[in-house]
Structures are given as structure tokens and as C-alpha cells.
């Protein structure tokens, strides 16, 4: 074990960790925004509304994330109109390709979590909202979504942790995230154990932060469950 290597390259690993964190946060935000309409449509029992999200979720949950990344990174460039579009400067960047793949992927999982939670809002609470004269949009906005958000917190926190770990796949399309940086360093120093241990440690710390953050959110959104009786 050569601890000097760790100390020497730790700042660079931290830079990689920042990229990892950025990937997770940005695609987490985009993904959750996409998940809201997807989950709502998936919750519907009208076939024309739920069919598309159903197929979407089926595809993204049923195929490996690595394949999805490759499809976006190598696949999109195959199309002439993509290369000629105004978005090409972004779409040829591995960074944005990773963001796109991660966002679409996490949106599918999050939508499914949201759908489950919406289905678990007790019927009586929905009826109570209807009996005071609420119509559908208000019912979702005021009662069902706030209730569902409280219920999804543990599962969604879990999804973000999984996303943090799968973000290592971004290194396969030349992105210098934490794993990518570690591999670059190792290629020069031939110290895989030291550097991967250090990278693993940083992943652990990131997980810890995410876990704490969601524990806090969960406590906040489930205040009502605390009994003082």
C-alpha cells in the first residue's frame, strides 16, 4: 500500500467526484421533472394515457443502463438530422449524453415509484376530497400528490443512491467522473488498489450525504406520523 499516491491524487479524485455529483444532481432533477407527468399518466386507467408511459418505463427498466448510454452516445450520431440539428454541439458531448441517458433512466424508475404511491393513497381520503367538491386537478394537486410525495421518500432516496453508483458507467464514454478519473490515474501510476480504495471511500461519503438528505426530507414530509400522545 502506497498512501502517498492516495494523498497525491486525492484532489484530482475529488474533482472527479464533483463531476459525479453534478451528473447525479442534474439528471436527478431532470428525471424527477419528467417522472411527474409520466407517473401521473401511468396512474391513469385510460389506455391512451397510460400506454406510452407504460412502454417507456418497460424499455428503460428492462434494458441495461450501459446499453442506454451507448445508444445515446454512439446511436444518435448515426442520424444525419441529429448531426445537423442545433443541439448537436451538446449531443456530441459525452457529458450531455450521460445526462440524457441518466435522466431518461431515472425518470422511468421514479415514475414507477410515483405511480405506486398514487395507487396507495387510501380511497377514503380521496372520497373525502370529492365530497367537499374537489374536482380532478385540485384533488391531485392538493391531496394525492402531497400524500404520494410523503410515501415515495424512502424509495426515491434509494433510487438516487442507485443512480450515484450507476453513474460510474459514464466513464465508459470517456467522461472523467470519479471512476473515470480513478482509471486515468491508475493507467499512469499502476496502483489500482490504492486509487480504487480511495474512490470507493469517496462514493461512500457521497452516499452518506444523500442518505442523510433524504432522511431529513422523509422526516419533514412525514411530520404527521410523529405521535405525541
Amino acid at each position: 500500500m502506497d498512501f502517498n499516491v492516495i494523498i497525491q491524487y486525492f484532489p484530482r479524485l475529488l474533482e472527479g467526484a464533483m463531476t459525479t455529483l453534478e451528473l447525479v444532481v442534474v439528471s436527478g432533477l431532470i428525471g424527477s421533472l419528467l417522472a411527474l407527468p409520466l407517473g401521473l399518466a401511468r396512474h391513469s386507467h385510460r389506455p391512451w394515457l397510460y400506454a406510452l408511459p407504460y412502454a417507456y418505463i418497460f424499455f428503460f427498466r428492462g434494458t441495461p443502463l450501459l446499453v442506454q448510454i451507448f445508444l445515446v452516445y454512439y446511436g444518435l450520431a448515426q442520424f444525419e438530422f441529429v448531426r445537423e440539428s442545433a443541439l448537436w454541439p451538446y449531443l456530441r458531448e459525452p457529458y450531455w449524453c450521460a445526462i440524457i441517458a441518466f435522466s431518461l433512466n431515472t425518470a422511468a424508475y421514479t415514475a414507477e415509484i410515483l405511480r405506486g404511491a398514487l395507487g396507495n393513497v387510501p380511497r377514503g381520503e380521496i372520497e373525502a376530497a370529492k365530497t367537499i367538491g374537489m374536482r380532478r386537478v385540485m384533488l391531485y394537486r392538493r391531496i394525492m400528490l402531497p400524500r404520494a410525495f410523503g410515501m415515495i421518500m424512502p424509495a426515491y432516496g434509494n433510487e438516487v443512491i442507485l443512480m450515484l453508483k450507476s453513474s460510474a458507467l459514464a466513464s465508459t464514454i470517456t467522461l472523467l467522473d470519479l471512476t473515470g478519473t480513478a482509471r486515468t490515474i491508475i493507467a499512469r501510476t499502476y496502483t489500482p488498489i490504492e486509487i480504487f480504495l480511495a474512490a470507493g471511500f469517496i462514493y461512500l461519503m457521497l452516499s452518506l450525504i444523500i442518505i442523510q438528505f433524504f432522511r431529513f426530507l422523509e422526516k419533514r414530509s412525514n411530520r404527521h406520523l410523529v405521535s405525541t400522545r
Binding site: 381520503e125 391531496i143 402531497p146
Partner: peptide
């Protein structure tokens, strides 16, 4: 069953 909204 009362059906109060528990989060409020």
C-alpha cells in the same frame, strides 16, 4: 372512518 387527511 373519518377520512381526515393525515398530512394536514
Amino acid at each position: 372512518n373519518f377520512n381526515l387527511w393525515p398530512h394536514k
